[in-house]
Design a protein around this nucleic acid. Structure first.
Lengths: 279, 279
DNA sequence: GATATCTGTATTAATTATAGAACAGGCTTG
DNA sequence: CAAGCCTGTTCTATAATTAATACAGATATC
């Protein structure tokens, strides 16, 4: 393996990643994959720089960032070490035993209302809610915080005819599903899709993270008993503060490896009650 | 150093985002939020550049990328337009009606084995599987493809004493849970966590995406009836090709807004059978 | 204590990103 | 057709990133 003969990352800049950020991601990846143990020393900077194909200065900038995030500790003249919390919470690593029990830990969540408007729905939302052409929606953007730090960014869209039943003040206090019920509507079933997305600058600012971070995405459409859409939710979660956890048990036959979900939620993982709807 | 009086993004470079990439993400975000309709014309380049606080050249580079991804179309002398597929599939937008029905669409998935080794487990995996100190694991990295394009990156860890029962060839062909059963083990229950992560360079290469892309992350630990861990899976999915979808129905009482999951899976959303375990 | 290794720091030079401006040519509207 | 707005292109100047190198201070090892 020489220094830069391999094919791959010569051009590709132009809106791509800087070499510093690339090195940062590479290291973060190796840490997340468990290549190092907590307290273990990294290879020396010259070695690492050679492995990653960048100069030592660049490698150093990447390490600066990892250090700022608390993933590594550096001791002058000695080396760079994986910090205790390096393997654990904020990475790809196993989140099963981390901060998903937020509510139970006595912490409380609060809501901040960012905007509250009536607008023409975007095409995908209009489709999901099966809105007639021209019908507008009440669109509200909220941020949910836990102990003052925001962990989810919520965009809810409700058909105008329904959403007219409450005000901004209500939305800042009560859960949306409660407001829907107060309006005489019945939430009967819902379909939700879980995916991932990058944080854009606006969302990043609202969540206190940097643009380009990974976010957990939840899109949910709630229907009444007649199949009419009454709410559309687009939620983005900080994966270091929130994740979805579910327990599965083997269902029935030994053929076919089928599983039955037991609990679904990010906040209350180990519970025998039916799960709440996440916000 | 003036010309940018607004507060926010003055320093923060150093392993942060380039302005081009920042503008790219901002636009991608606005598209994903449904600010424009398919076929709609964007504001002019000078206007957009001013809004985003970058020069027209930089804004242009961002547009180049969006165009290369097929999100926008540019007509000389006319303007930049949101392409038909701009609102829909590859973004934060609603994935409910996109390619989650892969199997049903007659497409087939295949598996490519990347590596197959016996190594000391990373601390988090050792904890999840409750391995005694010193016990090693059989670690295999695989990529699952659909019609030739990779959509998931799988890292499975099985205690050495168990994994000794099969070979590389088996792993490349059969699902891991089937191999476990053939070894006389019973997969009784499992716990899985869904989160999001950024693609590191290695994973990015394996999945055919660029480093820094958002990935859907699934971590699953499978236990036998005695509560012993028999498999640990760390899966990363391309969110544009794979997502998790679940239907929820209102369970029982009108108090408390509780929901009961009906189906859980990324491949078979609309089905009454218990869901399969996703890989 | 001598020596090697490592991080911290500084300097220089080359490459790349970005801003700003000017101009050419296509589209649109009147 | 003419005026105005738009994208496409090119140029120059400035700033930031990156590489390469050298050296100082700290730490570990023998």
């Amino acid at each position: 393996m020489d220094s830069a003969a391999d094919g791959g990352n010569e051009r590709s800049f132009r809106a791509g990643l800087s070499r510093t950020r690339g090195a940062y991601l590479a290291l973060r990846d190796r840490i997340a994959r468990g290549e190092f143990r907590p307290g273990e020393r990294f290879p020396g900077e010259p070695t690492l720089a050679a492995e990653l194909g960048v100069s030592r200065v660049t490698l150093r900038h990447a390490l600066d960032r990892l250090e700022a995030e608390g993933l590594v500790e550096r001791r002058m003249g000695s080396g760079t070490y994986l910090s205790a919390r390096g393997a654990g919470s904020p990475l790809v690593a196993d989140l099963a035993n981390v901060l998903t029990h937020l509510v139970e830990m006595g912490k409380r969540t609060s809501v901040k209302l960012l905007s509250f408007t009536y607008v023409a729905p975007s095409p995908d939302i209009a489709t999901a809610l099966q809105l007639p052409e021209g019908e507008r929606v009440q669109r509200s953007e909220r941020v949910r915080l836990i102990d003052g730090t925001p962990f989810s960014y919520l965009v809810t869209s409700v058909p105008e005819s329904i959403g007219i039943g409450w005000s901004e003040v209500d939305l800042a206090k009560k859960p949306l599903l409660e407001l829907l019920e107060r309006a005489g509507l019945v939430a009967d079933h819902a379909r939700q899709t879980i995916s991932a997305a990058l944080a854009g600058p606006e969302v990043a600012r609202a969540l206190g993270i940097e643009p380009g971070s990974a976010l957990l995405s939840l899109t949910r459409t709630v229907f009444d008993p007649h199949g009419r859409g009454i709410e559309h939710l687009q939620a983005l979660y900080r994966p270091d503060l929130y994740s979805f956890q579910m327990d599965l048990v083997r269902a029935g036959h030994r053929e076919g490896r089928r599983w039955r979900p037991v609990a679904v939620d990010g906040l209350k993982p180990h519970d025998d009650r039916p799960p709440e709807a996440a916000e």
